[in-house]
């Protein structure tokens, strides 16, 4: 049985994708922010499909210490239950913040959760993905088009705007997917971005200010139910051989921003490695080898 890890698994697109994947026979490891939400989600999935193989892990992925802890727990679980193999990792957790707020490391929260958390988790689960020649799927958005990365102020400390921060984080998702393909496609790993379209979820209603809350409440009325985008995630997990595109909507490859270049992907990769302390890890390993 193939194993899939999915973040943001307790509501919205994540929960619906979990339901679909378990119905298709995947063993799903979901990550949710609160223990209570994980419990509720598990009950929800089990009520639809009593035979569903689903395990939840609790972690606040906005904090890097939690990403590292849950990655370790998942690696141990995979070693024990699936021969250390991970078929797919779905980096779906995301947020919108009306105000500039920071994580414990002082990183802007949308950038930290929407991009860095997935970046770090993917790196920590890479050995299991390589073993299974697995797939990494990011939840993107068409809003990544028409924006550039502000390299001189990537966390928008000088002029924070919630929408700009969100759009930029979604451009980061697709640049990360490209960076992964450039580096690991030769070892069998494929990375994708799913554009879910406008979906009826609560992303703009969680911990946002009154204005963003109101705008999102009105806007999401025109959205599709989460079952629609969930099909694209299931398609990308199921398809053999692994599809070769990068950006998908409604199970079909779509065009993405001209900003998605190798140069930008490499630049973001290097920056993200530094912000996640992966350069420290590499330096430490090199020092240990030298000793």
């Amino acid at each position: 049985m193939k194993t899939v890890v999915i973040t943001g698994a307790t509501s919205g697109i994540g929960l619906e994708t979990v339901r679909l994947l378990t119905e298709e026979g995947f063993h799903v490891l979901g990550i949710g922010r609160s223990a209570m939400n994980c419990k509720r989600a598990k009950e929800h999935i089990s009520s639809h499909n009593p035979n569903a193989r689903i395990v939840f892990f609790q972690a606040d992925l906005m904090q890097q210490r939690d990403v590292l802890r849950v990655a370790e727990d998942i690696m141990a679980y995979l070693d024990e239950k699936s021969g250390g193999q991970l078929h797919a990792l779905i980096n779906n957790a995301g947020c919108v913040r009306s105000w500039y707020m920071t994580t414990e490391e002082g990183y802007e929260q949308q950038f930290a959760l929407n991009h860095l958390a997935g970046f770090l988790l993917t790196h920590k689960l890479l050995p299991a993905l390589q073993k299974a020649r697995g797939r990494v799927i990011m939840t993107g958005s068409a809003s990544h088009k028409g924006i550039k990365i502000r390299w001189d102020d990537v966390m928008l400390r000088r002029r924070y705007n919630p929408l700009t921060a969100y759009k930029q984080s979604k451009l980061c998702n697709i640049l990360f997917a490209k960076g992964l393909n450039d580096r690991f496609a030769h070892s069998g790993i494929r990375a994708y971005v799913v554009d879910p379209g406008l979906v009826k979820t609560d992303i703009g209603n969680k911990e946002t200010g009154s204005l963003v809350n109101l705008i999102w409440s009105l806007r999401k009325r025109a959205g599709v139910p989460p079952e629609i985008p969930a099909k694209t995630y299931a398609f990308l997990c199921r398809q053999e051989p692994a599809p070769e595109g990068l950006y998908y909507r409604h199970c079909k490859e779509k065009k993405y921003s001209g900003q998605v270049t190798r140069e930008n992907a490499d630049r973001l990769f290097a920056l993200s490695e530094r912000l996640c302390g992966l350069c420290d890890d590499t330096a430490r390993q090199e020092r240990t080898k030298a000793v």
Partner: peptide
């Protein structure tokens, strides 16, 4: 708005909470 709790506090103050809230990054600079 420094934490989720302060955000709730500002929301609870309604109009006056919203109009007196200053962006953290601006205040710091």
């Amino acid at each position: 708005v420094t934490t989720e709790e302060t955000l709730c506090g500002i929301k609870a103050q309604g109009f006056w909470g919203n109009v007196t809230t200053a962006p953290l990054e601006d205040v710091a600079r």
